[in-house]
Each structure stands twice: as C-alpha cells, then as structure tokens.
Nucleic acid binder design. Sequence first.
DNA 1: GAATAAATTGTTTTT
DNA 2: CAATTTATTC
Length: 758
Amino acid sequence: MDLTKLNPMQQQAAETLQGPVLILAGAGSGKTRTLTYRIANLIDHGVKPWHILALTFTNKAAREMRGRVEKLVGADAQDMWLGTFHSICVRILRRDIEKLGYQRSFTIYDDDDQLRVIKDGLKTLGMDENRSQPKELRSRISGAKNKMLTPDEWFQESARDFQAQQFHDLYTYYEERLRAANALDFDDLLLRALQLFVDHPPVLDYYRQRFQYVLVDEYQDTNMAQYTFVRLLTQESRNLCVVGDDDQSIYGWRGADIRNILDFEKDFPDARVIKLEQNYRSTANILDAANQVIAHNTGRKEKALWTEAGEGEKIHLYAAGDEREEAAWICERVKKLQQTRVPYAQMAILYRNHTLSRVIEEMLVRSGIPYRVFGGTRFYDRKEIRDALAYLRVIVNPADDVSLVRIINTPKRSIGDSTVAVLQEFAKKEDLPLFSVLSDPPDTLSSRPKKCIGEFALLMMKLTALKDTLSLSELVETMLNETGLKAQFSIEGSEEAQTRLDNLNELAGAAKEFENQSDDKSLEAFLENVSLVTDLDNQEEAPQYVTLMTLHSAKGLEYDAVFMTGMEEGIFPSMRSTMDEEKMEEERRLCYVGMTRARKILFLSYARRRAIYNQITHNSPSPFLREIPERLLIDEWNNASRQSFAPEPAKPAMVSRKDRPRNLSFGTPGMAAGARGALNIPGVQKGFVASAARSVASSSAMGSLFKAGDRVLHRKFGEGTVQAVRGAGADARIQIAFTAYGTKEFSLAIAPIVKIEE
DNA sequence: GAATAAATTGTTTTT
DNA sequence: CAATTTATTC
C-alpha cells in the first residue's frame, strides 16, 4: 500500500493494524482519508474484507467511505461490512432475531409510531395526558434504553416514588405493545442485537470470528449501547480502531456519551493514541477563531490544530436589525460571491434549527438564487406517505397494530373511533393482534360497522395475497389504487390535494427506483430502507445549489463559504442550554463544528430583533461571538454605515461610527463591564442602536437585490422590468413596468416578486 | 361518524 | 404562524 500520500501521523494511524488504537482527529485533519487508507492497508496485509467491520453514524458517511475504499482496493471492498450502527444491527437481527421470539418480518417504529404507543398507554393506564408530555416521556424511555435499563431496572435506580412508578408502568406498557406488534424502535435495534449476543453465545462467537478488525468512525457520538456492542465484539481480537474528536461531540441529547472517547485509554491501557492535528481545510484565521472558541470548554483532550494555509480572509460579522435583513444580507453576499469567485455548490447556510430557514428561503427565492434545504420535514414523514407506508407495513407484519389503527379508517370507510375501540378491547381480551379480529368481529357490534370492517378485512387480505405474486413496484401501485388513497385526492381539485397525489406517485417512483438499484427487491427491504435512510443521505453531487441545513447535519461536510445565521443567545445557544454549563459546552462544540466547515470564508450573523413564533423577541448576540478574538473579525455593521451613510435617521443623538467603541459592542445593559472583549455603550439604549443599524443596513442589503433593468416575475401581474428602486429598508418602493399591466409601484418589503434575470 | 369551527400549543438538534 | 387537537353541529 502506498502510504506516501499521508502525513507522518496519518501514516502511523494507517500502519498500526493490531491492537486498540485511538485516533484523535481534529476537524479537517483528513480523518476519512486516513481511515480508508487504513482499511486498504489491512486488506493489503492479507486481511480478508469480510473480516472487517466499519461502523459510521450516517449512511452518507458509510457510502462515502465505501466508495473511497473501493477506489483503493477495487471490488474486494464489496465483502466488507460497512454501515451505520443501526443498519448493521438490523442486518444481524434479520438473521437471528427469531431466537429472541420476534419474527424476521419485524417492523421498525419511528418517533411518530412511538408517540402513538405512548399516547395509547397514557389513556389505557388512566394517566393524565396533559400533565405528562408524550414527547418528554419518549425521550425518557429512550434515555433509559440508552443506558440499557429495562423498566424494572430503571425503577430500581430511580427515586421509587409515585412518579417513578407511573413512568415505570408506562415504559412497561410501551415495551409490551412493541413486543406484541413485532416491532422495534431505533434504540431496540441496538439493544436487541446486544441481547442476541449476550443470550446466545454462539451468535456472538460467530461475529467475533467474523469481525476480526473493527473500526468506528465518530466515536465521540457513541452511546452506551453502541459502546457495549463494540466492546463485546472486540474483546477477543482486541483489534479495535476508533476515530473521533471530543470537540465535535454534538449528540449528547441523544444519549451519546463523550466519556466513551475520553476514557478510551482507561478501557484499553495498551491503546496506541495517535493525534491528527494538521488541518487541511480552513484558512488560519478561521481555524484560529474556532480554536479560540472551543478553548473555552473544560475537560477536553489536549489538541493543537494547525495549518499551513495562509491567514486568509477575516471572518465577516453582521448585525442585522431583524431576520429579514439578515436574510437579505446573506442573499446579497451569496450573489456577490457567486459572481466573483465561489460557485453556489460551494456555499452553505447553516442554522441552529429548521424554523430559521423559512425567512432565508423566501429571500433566496426572491433573489433568484437556487438552493436546496436538507432535513426538515422529510418526504417519508408526510402524512399521505406515512399512510401509504402503513398499508405496506401491515402487509408485511399484520401484528403491527399502530400502523393498522392508522389506516383502518384512512381513507374514510366509516370505521370510527368507537368501533375501533371495541375491536381493540376484543383483541386484547383474546390476546390477539388487532388484525386477526377483523375477519371475525365481536357480536356486540351492529351490522353496519361489521359490514365496513368486513370490506376492509377483505381488502387487506387481497393485498397481502398479492405480495407474493407482484413485484414491489406493482404492489405499491396496486395498493395506492385499491385502498382509495389516490382516489381521495384525485376527486378533490385543490392544489394541496394535487401535491399529495404527486407525493404518492413519487412514492411509487421511489419503489421502482429501489427495485432497479437494490439487490434485495423485497417489500421488507424497501421498508427497512425507508426507515433507516434519511433525505440527507440522498444529497446529490455537483448541482449548482446553495445548501441550507442545520449545524448538526453539517457535520462531516465542508464548503468554501459558510454562513452561520441566528448567532443569538436563546437561538444559538438554544434557550434550553443557557442555564446548564454542560449543555453550553455542547452548544459550543456545535459552534466549533459549524465554523470548521468553512474552507475560505466564514460569515456570522445575528438579528437584534427577531419574530419567533408569534412574537417579536430581542436577543443578545451569542456569547460565542465574544469568544472570537476581535482581530479576526470584520464588522460589516461598520462597513455598511460607511458606504451608505444616507441622510437617514432624524433622531438627534445618532450614534455615528466614530462614537462607537472600537470594540465590537456586544454589551447589553445587564452585562458586566469588562467581560472579555466587550464594552457597554454608556448612555445609549440598546433599542436605539438596533434601529439605527437596521435602517442603514437595509438600504445596502435589501435594495441591492433588485435594480433597474432586472426582469422580475410578479405573482399576479406576471413578468415585468424594474424601472426604479427608491427609498431604503422597510419603506423601500419598487417600480415595475409589466408586459401586460403597465407600470406599477410596490413596497419592496412585501411585493410577491421573483427576479428572473439581471 | 363526518365535517366544520375553534382552540390550543408548541419550537433543538436526528439515527 | 401553522399544525394538530378538541368542541360543536349536522
């Protein structure tokens, strides 16, 4: 294996093949590259590909790694097990789960299914639905599972008071329901695989023999179950190589335990520890800033990331008056960059939560900038799609009561809540799944509901029978037609109904696509794929789009230019983190992750005033901004005021540029003077500064989106040419000559117009 | 049991 | 603000 393309540390990592290895890989240090070379090197040293197991957190990471290994070693890589923890566990379970009393056709319950079970449970157990928040309970159940505690074990460790008893009962109910439905939730995928290992030593032995070499990517994000899984597998071979960066641990809320990586050397005293500290991604300024921010965390592994790259551009900081201005500024910068040096595909706009994307999207549309949003409401989360999938799930696994209840009256077939309740009662008494009572409903029901149930039962039997004769795509197509799912939307002519119909057709298309692409063309495999693969994994290569996504989903990616938006206290860090030092540290790591995505240019922005849900909030700038040394920043607030110092604000005590402190004034009235790099502005009200900033900034940002001569499309009046743009900020007016309607004037802020060409 | 109107309520991040 | 849940009427 030619390892000369690696730096000395990377080489060491790729050459240390035996025994426990911890690779501490800082952001942008060529982690994936090192890992793929190490795998190739293993194969080069005679290790058979099927003796290698590589675990990642996302399918995307898995696919990328597989591709890169294939490039190095050829088709041999096919035989290597490489995938997410979850998908590998499913693979293991599909083989042997019958040993645990489940059927192979088990269903995977996602969070929505979980909530349904929990709500049912609250009702059944007579608990107050309003007092206990189902979502909160779900995360508590998940928390218990991540610690590998059964309901009883959990109770033993709890306060054992009334509240604990209630939770214990609900958790028990939940487990029973899933078991009866032959269903596993995401956490179960790991737990049941573990149980299989523990309860059935021959199975464990088999996999220990099989996986002589185990590699784990993003080790800082493993939870206790994953940790145990890996330890169990490697106990004999001791050939475990983990890669990670404690500074990039951002999934604590999901049960990830940062101690797994911090304590690796305790777990394996003979471990080789290799640090990759040279960063190949970012300019010195960006790296410097990120390092300074993360240095505020305690209990880190010592690391000193460095780069040979030049200083590069300073980091741009922008204080917008409100979220619309922030969006406008971003669009303006995106445009300018695209025209001069950065293609759209090399730009990303990141935010803490999806709700922030909306305003930005609107502005992008109006500016005629092509973009793609990742995450958010996923295709498979749409109601009509979930309905369709529920049919398929029942066909595969008739015991899946949650899905059955979902579809029994969708589309409407006169089987109402009360009828379903009777059926459920009856099924429970007989200790049968709901499905098997359908063909023989209890006599307590009157004839009309009975008839409806009979028709539904017939439909489901018919579909189930077709499963073995039709191909996957034919089955999906038939199901969509026979169940009336399509019909309910095609009758109605509304726009919404049309979209839903389109979505259903897209699902049929997805099935067809799956049929063409996948080896295993079964319905089971299709459903599994739907459960485990997210939209994020289907990110297409190359097309010229600006990427919008959350900071979390940006991990592992890189872009020439990165915009981090909503840098405000209460947004980022999120409101729920500000009071808790540990959570703040995780937020800070998230900030670090975001900053280190940028190769050349980093933009940070915040809005002083932001409309969040139905009310306006005034947020202070994010404390993380203060942690960036001032010498690395360009304050675009200043620049904006310099360029367009319009005869703007009338009020007497305008704060001119020279009156502003040289330091960036992040100070808020309540903040202690003398805090790092920050000063208060004596005697000047925060609100006033904000409004001054807003009016000045908007003239430069908003106005420049449209200029005379641009061709635009108005929602009502069609195409037209911009004649003039007058005024600034919220008052700006735009004059457009329409092809069909003559010349009209609008408020720039609210006109439904889109630019179509310059 | 369905359709419509009213009210509530929630907002982190995702395999 | 939107999306889901609940009340009201037919």
